Simulated scan of single mutants.
Amino acid sequence: MMEDNNSHGFHAGQSGLVVRVPEAEPAVRAWRERLDPSARAGVPAHVTVLFPFLDADRIDQDVHDTLGEVFGRHPSFEVRFERCGRFPGLLYLVPDPDTPFRDLTEAVVERWPDTPPYGGKYGDAVPHLTVAQDLDEAAVERAEADLLSRLPVGTRVSAVDLVVHDGTRWRLRASFALR
């Protein structure tokens, strides 16, 4: 999720909006701790709603209130992770359904159009739970086989979290309830 392409660096003040998936931790924790820079920087298993979001110095009470209103218009929902997917160099769990995540992302971008997903680098922001990055094909095969033996995982999504990097780790700044 939350890396830039310069050696997976993070910088103080970066923020993102994520849905934590604690139910996935037993299946993905070992892989993420070794192979996902965001895990090593304090981000739990999650599906990104929007990264990057606003710089922390732009997030005031009005932004908090507006995020609460935006997310409060969306119903909570059930999601399952039953299979893996791949992007070049990245292994992830596929959320089903993914439409509610897409709806959340679209709602935030509609309100803050200067915050396209992943800075506009990719055309379609595909909802996913990153497990591993920068793997060779053999490692991807091993990780995927292990993950498939641990799936499915299901959860109820009832909130979106605002996380901010403090220069060392990602920290929870606020949580916004879905209706």
Rank of each mutant, 00 (worst) to 15 (best):
P52S: 09
P52I: 10
P52W: 11
F53W: 04
F53T: 00
F53E: 07
L54D: 02
I59R: 05
D60T: 00
Q61P: 05
Q61I: 08
D62C: 00
V63Q: 10
H64W: 08
H64F: 12
D65E: 13
T66I: 04
T66G: 08
L67M: 15
L67C: 14
L67Q: 09
G68C: 02
G68K: 05
G68W: 03
E69A: 15
E69C: 06
V70D: 02
V70K: 06
V70Y: 03
F71N: 06
F71M: 13
G72L: 06
R73E: 15
H74I: 12
P75M: 01
P75E: 15
S76P: 07
S76L: 09
S76C: 05
E78K: 13
V79S: 06
V79P: 12
V79E: 03
V79T: 13
R80W: 06
R80P: 05
F81W: 11
F81D: 01
F81L: 08
E82Q: 11
R83Q: 11
G85A: 08
R86D: 14
R86A: 14
F87M: 07
F87S: 01
F87H: 03
P88Q: 08
P88F: 05
L90E: 14
L91Y: 03
L91V: 15
Y92M: 00
L93V: 05
L93A: 06
V94A: 07
V94T: 11
V94Y: 06
V94E: 14
D96T: 12
D96L: 08
P97S: 10
D98Q: 10
D98T: 01
P100Y: 03
F101D: 04
F101L: 05
R102K: 11
R102M: 07
R102V: 10
D103L: 10
L104I: 01
L104V: 02
L104P: 05
T105P: 00
E106Y: 03
A107D: 13
V108R: 04
E110A: 14
E110W: 06
E110F: 02
R111W: 04
R111I: 01
R111L: 03
R111P: 02
W112K: 03
W112S: 07
W112G: 08
P113V: 04
T115N: 01
P116W: 09
P116K: 11
P116F: 08
P116Q: 10
P117A: 13
P117F: 11
Y118F: 14
G119L: 10
G119Y: 12
G120T: 02
Y122T: 09
Y122Q: 13
Y122L: 12
Y122D: 12
G123V: 07
G123H: 11
D124P: 06
A125G: 03
V126C: 00
V126T: 13
